[in-house]
């Protein structure tokens, strides 16, 4: 029972991570396409300014919780995905540094250099997260000792790549919606246009991804065993359909929230299909690490549940407060602040 609760919480942490870091990663990936001049680019950096660091901690938490509640899954997942994970981590290092260092030297060449770094270091995580999760949905070649029989290129299969493109499109749309909230004038107009352009692409990719999922993975087995679960992809679709509806009604915050709902249910669509598998073996069903054979002791699960039930709501409350505090669009005046990026 505790294992099942923790499996759901595990999915939830990843979902929250995708919703929160998703928009700033997507925003960074849009930098060369939307930021036409220095001021606009700075608005884009500062639109993520007070948020990106706190958002990234959700990744640490997802990692930490995997370690604490499912040590075997943690061990196998990150050693099997050695190369993509390290590329992801290096990209996140460069992303953080690009925020902090870009505006510290008065030189156009210096800033352009960091703009390139910023773009690539946001783009790479979007794609890698998609590739990694698609491969987890499908299963990876691990044996009973948790040894991975493959290499980086084996992860770049058709389904994995589809996952990468799908995540990138989602995060870019999510980021464009965020920029609509946090900018004014021409930049806002372009951000809105980008969101409107990305939306149909995401819809098409969703349908393609669902089709490929049926062809390449066993995720739907759980759905046919328990048809009630079909509510998850339906809710994802409702979230996605909500985006243009809310935009047309002039409610950009609700459009962003709809996109968040979409991301949460896309994540849960995959996670529910995997259950109880966490690291599904594509070569030996007995080698699959599940929420049951990979879980910590009951005592650890109980203590960690207590910690999570107390701390996660507290974190959500103060992060919500921060989002409210900095909800206003970034203005020219904000950019004059010596503390701005």
């Amino acid at each position: 029972m505790l294992e099942t609760i923790w499996f759901i919480l595990w999915g939830l942490l990843w979902a929250v991570y995708f919703v929160l870091d998703g928009f700033d990663l997507g925003l960074g990936s849009l930098l060369p396409f939307l930021g036409k001049n220095e001021e606009e680019r700075r608005v884009m950096y500062n639109a993520a300014g007070p948020f990106w660091d706190g958002n990234e901690v959700w990744l640490i938490s997802a990692g930490g919780v995997t370690f604490a509640a499912f040590p075997k899954a943690y061990a196998v997942m990150f050693s099997a995905l050695y190369a993509p994970l390290l590329i992801l981590l290096f990209a996140l290092i460069f992303r953080a540094v690009s925020f902090e260092f870009r505006n510290k030297v008065e030189s156009d060449a210096w800033r352009s250099l960091w703009d390139v770094v910023h773009f690539l270091s946001n783009l790479a995580p979007c794609i890698l997260l998609g590739v990694a999760f698609a491969n987890l949905f499908m299963g990876i070649p691990i044996d009973a000792d948790g040894v991975y029989h493959g290499n980086l290129f084996k992860l770049l299969n058709l389904y994995g790549l589809a996952g990468g493109v799908f995540f990138l499109a989602i995060f870019m749309m999510h980021g464009a919606l965020w920029l609509t909230l946090k900018s004014e004038g021409h930049l806002q107009t372009r951000a809105l246009a980008a969101a409107n352009m990305l939306w149909p692409a995401v819809l098409v990719l969703l349908l393609v991804f669902l089709g490929l999922t049926a062809a390449y993975t066993n995720l739907f087995a759980n759905y046919f065993a328990m048809p009630l679960l079909f509510i998850l992809p339906v809710l994802a679709l409702v979230g996605l359909l909500g985006v243009p509806v809310m935009l047309r009604r002039g409610k950009p915050w609700l459009a962003w929230a709809s996109s968040a709902v979409f991301i949460i249910f896309v994540t849960f669509f995959g996670v529910a299909g995997m259950f109880p598998g966490m690291i599904i073996s594509s070569i030996d069903p007995a080698a699959t690490v599940t929420a049951f054979n990979g879980a910590s002791s009951q005592l650890t699960l109980k203590i960690m549940l207590g910690v999570a039930l107390v701390m996660v709501p507290i974190v959500l409350v103060y992060q919500f407060w921060v989002y409210k505090l900095f909800s206003a669009p970034v203005t020219a005046r904000d950019l004059e602040d010596p503390h701005a990026y």
Binding site: A75, S297, M311
Partner: peptide, 14 residues
């Protein structure tokens, strides 16, 4: 991980 992992997870959340 049963012991060590929880300390890291507590560090992140707390």
């Amino acid at each position: 991980g049963d012991i060590f992992g929880s300390l890291l997870a507590i560090e992140a959340t707390v």
